[in-house]
Design a protein around this nucleic acid. Structure first.
Length: 485
RNA sequence: GGCGGCAUAGCCAAGUGGCUAAGGCGGAGGUCUGCAAAACCUCUAUUCCCCAGUUCGAAUCUGGGUGCCGCCUCCA
């Protein structure tokens, strides 16, 4: 079994992955602030960490995944006020929307989806603890984290306090209460018309960063394994989480590995709600199946920028169809999958099979191992995809039974479906209406007769006519098959 | 200004010092075919943004430069 290496933002290099506890991986991924529709920029980390989680499980780890919802925030309040709605109801609406969308994207549910609004007590306790330890101070109804109390501040984003200081965020009515310009709010004093909770410092609500620290510590404890999120969260969000958490527990590290996915861009510009250039998951799924979007996302390395571009999507669609077709062809030929499973192969329990099999069989086992090598190398999904494409030429269904086809089908199905989640649910071509199917069959039969009589005009007329209706006919030696787009 | 990342074929994209620089899309040719489609086969970067350096050996390491992107205000 190939040991896993992951790029850790903390050290800015790849490290061999050693979990806190052997055989178990605890992951906290920063979720969304729920004030608007979720878009492809949110789909990326959801899909990437979903897939990473599946991979880790196949490697034999028990994986626990926690992903938060930030359902209290300035933007939510602003949006709710603008629409005359209750902030928490608005947030709940978009929580549901997000969950539905990522479920449609084939993302398995996290073990826990904690919400800020349900963890006010934990947050208040943590803030109180930070004040006790001298790492935070109340002022003007707010509570601020004191960066002066945390000498390691800046270690994640590699920033010097003096540099940050010279920048100064400037605006905001809280600034006047800060002792240091880089200090940030743990608790914000309530303004009229805002959701507020009682606290030792008066009515108010949590600041932006504290919730993740409080909830991660509650559910995963200090020193958990992987903390994930988008590249744009490195600073200040994750930097501040580290500061709060480590100042609170007195122990480092808060999380052992920080993994950050690259951003999604549109024409080279970051996709974001504020720029208004986003493609919502809803729109995306209306155009292409979820499995294709997963393929598109996983065909770039998770840390690189992923540019959303029409041409690339079409290229991905063709490549993706080829992978799926390999499975359909095998199934159509009546091949029954026979495969011990990736977990067994990777664990080295199937070595005996490697040598006694046919050429194709050993190619499949070799591909399985190369797939592991690719993914173990900082979760290199594009390299993993290449392994699959390299195997395709070896898989030929030519009518004659071939011994390696059964493991090939089993391998492909497990990788495409269980690991990557990119296997199209069903071969296109299904007609959901008995009448339509009957008519289609009749036309194909009529065309076959015309072709027999070399009446190409009629044959082409049927084919062209169906093409206009979105039904593609393909003549193969085994007969005509149709696919509906 | 500070911090971080990226630059590899027409496009996308792997490449963690050393066999002929993965793979996908596109393109060219071919097999098959009434034609088409699909599938399959073959070909498609003497060279990795530029300049120095380290090394027997560099796309890969170091320094400098150029260009693009992100963060430093809310962001996945």
């Amino acid at each position: 079994m190939t040991p896993i290496e992951l790029y850790n933002t903390l050290s800015r290099r790849k490290e061999t992955f050693v979990p806190r506890e052997p055989g178990a991986v605890d992951i906290y991924v920063c979720g969304v602030t729920t004030y608007d529709q979720s878009h492809l920029g949110h789909a990326r980390p959801a899909v990437v960490f979903d897939c990473l989680r599946r991979y880790l499980r196949l490697k034999g780890y028990r994986v626990r995944l926690v992903q938060n919802f930030t359902d209290i925030d300035d933007k939510i309040i602003a949006r709710a006020n603008a629409e005359g709605k209750d902030p928490l109801e608005l947030a709940d609406f978009y929580c549901q929307e997000y969950l539905q969308n990522i479920t449609r994207l084939g993302v398995e549910r996290a073990d826990i989806y904690p919400r800020v609004s349900a963890h006010i007590k934990e947050i208040i306790d943590m803030i109180a603890g930070l004040i006790e330890r001298g790492a935070a101070y109340p002022a003007g109804g707010h509570v601020f984290f004191s960066v002066a109390a945390f000498p390691e501040y800046g270690k994640l984003s590699n920033q010097k306090l003096e540099e940050l200081e010279s920048q100064g965020s400037g605006a905001g009515d809280e600034e006047q209460y800060k002792r240091h310009p880089v200090d940030f709010a743990l608790w914000k004093a309530a303004k009229p018309g805002e959701p507020a909770w009682d606290s030792p410092w008066g009515k108010g609500r949590p600041g932006w960063h504290i919730e993740c620290s409080a909830m991660a510590l509650k559910y995963l404890g200090n020193g958990f394994d992987i903390h994930g999120g988008g590249m744009d969260l490195v600073f200040p969000h994750h930097e501040n989480e580290i500061a709060q958490s480590e100042a609170y527990t007195g122990k480092a590290p808060f999380a052992r590995y920080f993994l950050h996915n690259g951003l999604v861009t549109v024409n080279g510009e970051k996709m974001s709600k504020s720029l208004g250039n986003f493609v919502s998951i809803d729109e995306a799924l209306a155009r292409y199946p979820a499995e294709l979007w997963r393929y598109f996302i996983l065909s770039s390395h998770y840390r690189s920028v992923l540019d959303f571009e029409e041409e690339r999507l079409e290229a991905a669609h063709k490549a993706w169809t080829r992978l799926n077709r390999a499975v359909w062809d095998l199934e159509e030929a009546g091949v029954q999958p026979d495969w011990p499973g990736l977990a067994a192969v990777w664990a080295g329990m199937e070595t005996a099979q490697n040598n006694q099999g046919t050429e194709l069989e050993s190619a499949v086992y070799a591909a399985a191992r190369r797939l592991d090598e690719a993914l173990a190398n900082d979760f290199n999904t594009p390299a993993a995809m290449a392994v699959l494409f390299e195997l395709l030429p070896a898989i030929k269904v030519d009518g004659r039974p071939q011994r390696g086809l059964a493991p090939a089908l089993g391998f492909l199905k497990e990788v495409l479906s269980d690991l990557l989640g990119v296997l199209a649910p069903a071969k296109p071509g299904g007609v959901n209406d008995a009448l339509a199917e009957g008519l289609l069959r009749l036309l194909v039969e009529l065309r076959a007769e015309a072709r027999k009589k070399k009446d190409w005009t009629t044959a082409d007329r049927i084919r062209d006519g169906l093409a206009r209706l979105g039904v593609k006919l393909e003549d193969t030696p085994e007969g005509t098959r149709w696919t509906i787009s």
